[in-house]
Design a protein around this nucleic acid. Sequence first.
DNA 1: AGGTTAATTAACCTGATGGATAATTGATGT
DNA 2: ACATCAATTATCCATCAGGTTAATTAACCT
Lengths: 231, 231
Amino acid sequence: MKAESVRKPANEEPTKARRRDREKTKAEILQIAFEEFAESGLLGANADAIAARAGITKRLIFYYFNSKEELFTAVLEMAYGKMRLAEEDLHLETLEPEAAIRRLAEFTFDFHQANPEFVRLVAIENIHRGRHINSSEKLKQMTRPVIGQIERMLAKGKGLGAIRPEVDAYELHATLNALSIFSVANRHTFEAQFRWDMSSPEAKARRRVEIAEVLWRYVRGSPRSSITDEE
Amino acid sequence: MKAESVRKPANEEPTKARRRDREKTKAEILQIAFEEFAESGLLGANADAIAARAGITKRLIFYYFNSKEELFTAVLEMAYGKMRLAEEDLHLETLEPEAAIRRLAEFTFDFHQANPEFVRLVAIENIHRGRHINSSEKLKQMTRPVIGQIERMLAKGKGLGAIRPEVDAYELHATLNALSIFSVANRHTFEAQFRWDMSSPEAKARRRVEIAEVLWRYVRGSPRSSITDEE
DNA sequence: AGGTTAATTAACCTGATGGATAATTGATGT
DNA sequence: ACATCAATTATCCATCAGGTTAATTAACCT
């Protein structure tokens, strides 16, 4: 690559006069927009603020992303992309059923705990009725690898008799996501209503095992299932 | 645009010249503000639109509620108040442990399904980090009756050996709320990602029993010893 | 070098919107 | 009947913020 080409006369600052790097600029806008949208929502986020933080002019935002809405969509694409990448490293297939379930639960929980901005972004997108995720071809094509992994893992567990046959991969995934996301997304109202700490490390650790426990008790095969076929 | 002026000379509707009823006007503002906030969020909601729909002048909104933020807080108070009232009719104590758990699960699920605006409002308040719920003395005092009912019900169930002794009322409540709220709050992104219907009556019915199932399997005492059902 | 293109900037525009000022009008008590 | 006060209206205002127009300038290509 080209050297920095810093022919700074007196000023020795390495990052002076913004280098003209299309991809880098776009990436920086995207990252800061991600933070701002997660912080303040689609309407609350401010183009001037994003530009200021990125050290660029507002016009550049509209130059690369045509509108606020499209910028938000691009941010969503990036965020989901990262999650998708993380999910690829799960490797549930190698584990025994119970270990796999607990690993899945803890992975999901940890991911949401470590990425509250992502969780907030998803909440914001839902407030807006998912219109961006639905308008993005990229996002609609972007299949998430977890669901396949869960299906294979369940199949294996059912074969071994460790997991009851009625369990559905989507229901399981919905259950886990609900539990995991709630701990981040509804923290504030829940804590305010019940004065119950969800944010301390101890509370998180407790909730983490609790969620794994919920999941495992939900899927495990038992000598006598109380599920009936009526209805 | 705004040609809706005063061209009503002959037609005299019974609700002409707004009757001066403080409480009624406040209640109307509150109800419409509830809908608007749930629809568009704290920033998206528009005072002019609320006024127009309520058939009053915008000034009246600020006359009764001093600012948009305070109006939002008042809306929250009303919404939580309604839920609290509903919870009083639960009467879990009279039921057997398993029936009580399933009733609790179904009640909560049904409430959220029937009140998506409420769920959206809570999501919005969380996006705003719960600053309104935390700034309202009324809301902070407003204890929710469920938690007490759950505690008593769990105690009874533990006494009977039907519920395992480790189960905590708050964890249980968090679990149930997470599952129940998720079906409404994250509907859009979930459906978009997995092309999995969560909105049809059949999908809801399935999810409803699934959630009850999750809860019951989570709390019940060791299945090997206390499976007495045959059903 | 010099011209061309694309990245970047500076300044501007305008509609929307929360909120304020001040006047008006209906009910109520005496 | 009239004064009073609260409920309500009509209008205005200042600012914010998304988006635009037009100029500038750094890099790249002969």
